[in-house]
Structures are given as structure tokens and as C-alpha cells.
């Protein structure tokens, strides 16, 4: 399994886009830590990058890479290799490369300047979101035969998770403000990995007190081992389910 992955990684890390992405993250992280007098503020600004830029880059890059690798995948399929192995290797290679870019660009600065709870939760969230949005990219790519359609649909997905979803949550909160919504809000946020990651980081940053009694509940929950387990499992589900679905489709698909 790892053989093919290794070559995919080898190919991608020499990709100019990935290099530019790594450099961008590195420059932004370092300058944020240099400019902001307080590490918490830098982490908050980095959080915006991790929640917005990182999913966008991951999903678009993975999609484009998939379509560019189409003929290569075809060639692999003519070899005595199982389909699951091929698509999974492609996924693993893409995801690993993006992870490496993230860990180099954001991980190292964070570990140098802010290796605390909030920094680590930022890295955790970033890694999860990279894997999740690569997963989603593969799902969208195997579903859409056409590159333009594929890229269109992943942009839409990104738009949905980054922007539209929270708008919908806001609408729900206002339309049902007469009901006790604490649990439902929590559930709703868990259904969007970007929101879940954001809350996970924010609670580590002591924002919870702003949320009153509910905030304290959330903080207790997310701060505990159960909370970490909950967050991790939801994140893992977000990684695994789209990927499994993509593999299923790929296995039945005509190339």
C-alpha cells in the first residue's frame, strides 16, 4: 500500500502550488507571531486561516490533482492492483502532502511560539480539516466525470461549510429562539467540521465564559476526555465516511 502512496507524495511535494502553499502558511504564521504582541491573538488570526484558507486549498488542490492524475490512475488500473488500493493510495498521498505543508507552515511556528493547549488544538483542527476536505474532494471528484464540474462542486462544498452553513444555523436560532436550543446548537455545529474545529479551539482559549452557563457546560464537555473523544470521533467520521463513499463509487466506476 505505502509504495504507491510514497510516489504520489513524492510527486506532490515537488508541486509548485504545494510549495507556494507551504511558504504562504509559514510566512503568515511567522509574521503573525512576530507582529501580535500576544500569542492568543496570533492563534486567533491563524484560526481564521485554518478554518477558511486551509479547507479551500485542500479541497481545490486535491480535486485538481485527482483530475490531473486521471491517466495515471488509468495506468495503475491496468496493473495487477486492486482499485481500493489505488484510490486509497492517491488519497493518502494527497492528504499526507497537504498535511506536511500544514505542519511545516503552521505547525513549526506554533510549536515554537505557542506550544500550549490552544496552539495544539489549532494544529489538531488543522490536521483534521485537511484530511476531511481532501476526503470530500475525492468524493466530489469520483462523482463528477468532468473536471470543471468537479471543481465547481467542491467550491460549492467549501462555500457551504465555510459560509452558508453558519448562516443557516443563525436562521434556525432566530426562528426557534423560543425553544431551548443549547443541545441542538451543539449538535448542529458538530455536523459541520469547520464549526466543530472552531469551537474546539475557542473553548481552549477561554472564550467559554462569554457563553454564560451553556458555555461553561461546553467547556466542561470539550475540556474533558469525553469531549476530546467526541470531537475526534466526529472528525474521524468526517474523514472516513466521504472517503469510504468515494472508494465505493470508484470501485464501481467506469474509468
Amino acid at each position: 500500500m505505502m509504495k504507491l502512496t510514497r510516489y504520489v507524495v513524492y510527486d506532490i511535494i515537488r508541486n509548485k502550488v504545494i510549495m507556494a502553499y507551504t511558504l504562504f502558511l509559514l510566512v503568515v504564521s511567522l509574521s503573525l507571531f512576530q507582529v501580535e504582541e500576544n500569542q492568543g491573538k496570533a492563534i486567533l488570526s491563524l484560526m481564521n486561516i485554518v478554518l477558511i484558507v486551509l479547507p479551500l486549498v485542500s479541497i481545490v488542490f486535491a480535486t485538481i490533482h485527482y483530475y490531473n492524475s486521471y491517466e495515471f490512475i488509468e495506468l495503475m488500473l491496468s496493473q495487477p492492483l486492486g482499485r481500493t488500493r489505488i484510490i486509497f493510495s492517491e488519497y493518502a498521498g494527497t492528504a499526507l502532502s497537504l498535511l506536511m505543508a500544514f505542519l511545516l507552515g503552521v505547525g513549526i511556528p506554533v510549536l515554537i511560539y505557542s506550544p500550549d493547549d490552544s496552539g495544539l488544538s489549532l494544529l489538531f483542527t488543522g490536521c483534521c480539516l485537511t484530511l476531511i476536505f481532501t476526503s470530500l474532494a475525492f468524493l466530489a471528484s469520483v462523482k463528477a466525470r468532468d473536471k470543471a464540474r468537479g471543481i465547481g462542486s467542491v467550491l460549492l462544498l467549501w462555500f457551504y461549510f465555510a459560509l452558508i452553513y453558519d448562516g443557516l444555523v443563525l436562521l434556525i436560532l432566530f426562528n426557534f429562539s423560543d425553544y431551548p436550543l443549547e443541545k441542538i446548537t451543539l449538535l448542529l455545529t458538530a455536523l459541520n467540521p469547520v464549526d466543530l474545529g472552531r469551537i474546539f479551539i475557542m473553548l481552549k482559549m477561554d472564550i467559554s465564559a462569554l457563553m454564560g452557563y451553556t458555555g461553561a457546560l461546553y467547556k466542561d464537555f470539550f475540556g474533558s476526555g469525553t469531549g476530546l473523544l467526541f470531537t475526534s470521533s466526529i472528525m474521524v467520521l468526517w474523514i472516513v465516511l466521504p472517503l469510504l463513499w468515494a472508494i465505493r463509487i470508484f470501485n464501481k466506476k467506469d474509468i
Binding site: 504507491l4 513524492y10 490531473n68
Partner: peptide, 29 residues
Amino acid sequence: HEYRRMIGYMPQIGRYPDNMRIGQLFSMM
């Protein structure tokens, strides 16, 4: 998929990972 061990296939359009070197492609295969 094991039967494909018997087959050598040359596609109409050969496109390979951009940054892979020819030598690497062969050793990978």
C-alpha cells in the same frame, strides 16, 4: 485484478505525475 499481471498495456495518451522522473516511474512500476 491479478490477471492483469499477464497484460502489458500501452494507453492512447500517456500522462504521468508531473514531478515524477522517468527513472522513478520505472522503479515504481
